[in-house]
Amino acid sequence: DIIVVALYDYEAIHHEDLSFQKGDQMVVLEESGEWWKARSLATRKEGYIPSNYVARVDS
C-alpha cells in the first residue's frame, strides 16, 4: 500500500472529497492526475485528496 502523510489541513469542497488535518496518514487507493482517492487511517473514510497536499511515507 502507498501511505501518505498530510502536509497541510484540507477542508473538503465537494461531497466526494476527504477532509484531513496536517499529520494525518492515508492509504492511496487510486492515483489519477492531481486528485487521488484515499482512505484515512484514523477515520477509515474514503474520498478524493489533492495530491500536492500530501507526501509519501517511506516504509
Rank of each mutant, 00 (worst) to 15 (best):
D1C: 15
D1F: 14
D1Q: 14
D1L: 14
D1W: 14
I2T: 10
I3L: 12
I3P: 03
V4L: 05
V5F: 08
V5Y: 10
V5E: 07
V5A: 05
A6N: 00
A6T: 02
L7H: 03
L7F: 03
L7Q: 05
L7M: 08
Y8E: 08
Y8T: 07
Y8N: 06
Y8S: 07
Y8F: 12
D9K: 06
D9G: 06
D9L: 02
D9V: 03
Y10K: 03
Y10F: 14
Y10I: 02
Y10S: 02
Y10E: 00
E11C: 12
E11Y: 11
E11W: 10
A12L: 02
A12D: 02
A12N: 04
A12W: 02
I13L: 12
I13M: 12
H14P: 02
H14A: 08
H14D: 09
H14I: 05
H14Q: 08
H15N: 13
H15E: 15
E16N: 14
E16A: 11
E16C: 15
E16H: 15
E16M: 11
E16Y: 14
E16K: 10
E16V: 08
E16L: 12
D17C: 14
D17Y: 14
D17F: 15
D17I: 07
D17G: 15
D17R: 09
D17K: 08
D17P: 02
L18W: 01
L18E: 00
S19Q: 06
F20N: 00
F20S: 00
Q21I: 10
Q21W: 08
K22T: 08
K22R: 10
K22P: 03
K22H: 05
K22V: 09
G23V: 01
G23N: 05
D24A: 05
D24C: 04
D24M: 05
D24L: 02
D24Y: 02
Q25P: 05
Q25R: 15
Q25V: 15
M26K: 00
M26A: 01
M26I: 05
M26S: 00
V27E: 09
V27W: 09
V28K: 02
V28G: 01
V28H: 00
V28Q: 01
V28N: 01
V28S: 01
L29G: 02
L29P: 00
L29M: 08
L29Q: 05
E30P: 03
E30F: 10
E30A: 09
E30Q: 10
E31I: 14
E31F: 15
E31K: 13
E31W: 15
S32L: 13
S32A: 11
G33D: 06
E34Q: 12
E34C: 15
E34D: 14
E34G: 10
W35A: 04
W35Y: 11
W35R: 14
W35K: 12
W35G: 04
W35N: 07
W36V: 09
W36G: 02
W36K: 06
W36D: 02
W36M: 14
K37V: 09
K37G: 03
A38Y: 01
A38R: 00
R39H: 08
R39D: 01
R39I: 10
R39E: 04
R39W: 08
S40L: 15
L41I: 11
L41W: 04
L41T: 07
L41Y: 05
L41G: 03
A42M: 12
A42D: 10
A42T: 12
A42Q: 10
A42Y: 07
A42V: 14
T43H: 05
T43G: 06
T43F: 03
T43C: 05
T43V: 03
T43S: 10
T43I: 04
R44G: 15
R44E: 12
R44C: 15
R44D: 13
R44M: 15
K45R: 11
K45T: 07
K45H: 09
K45N: 09
K45M: 12
E46R: 04
E46D: 06
E46I: 11
E46P: 02
G47F: 01
G47C: 01
G47D: 00
G47Y: 01
G47K: 00
Y48T: 06
Y48A: 04
Y48E: 02
Y48W: 15
I49Q: 00
I49N: 01
I49K: 00
I49M: 02
P50N: 11
P50G: 03
S51G: 08
S51E: 04
S51Y: 10
S51H: 10
S51F: 09
S51D: 03
N52K: 13
N52V: 08
Y53S: 09
V54G: 01
V54K: 01
V54R: 00
V54L: 04
V54C: 06
V54P: 02
V54I: 07
V54D: 00
V54N: 00
A55G: 07
A55V: 14
R56S: 08
R56C: 09
R56M: 10
V57E: 07
V57H: 07
V57M: 11
V57C: 11
V57P: 07
V57D: 07
D58R: 10
D58C: 12
D58Q: 11
D58E: 12
D58I: 12
S59Q: 13
S59D: 11
S59I: 12
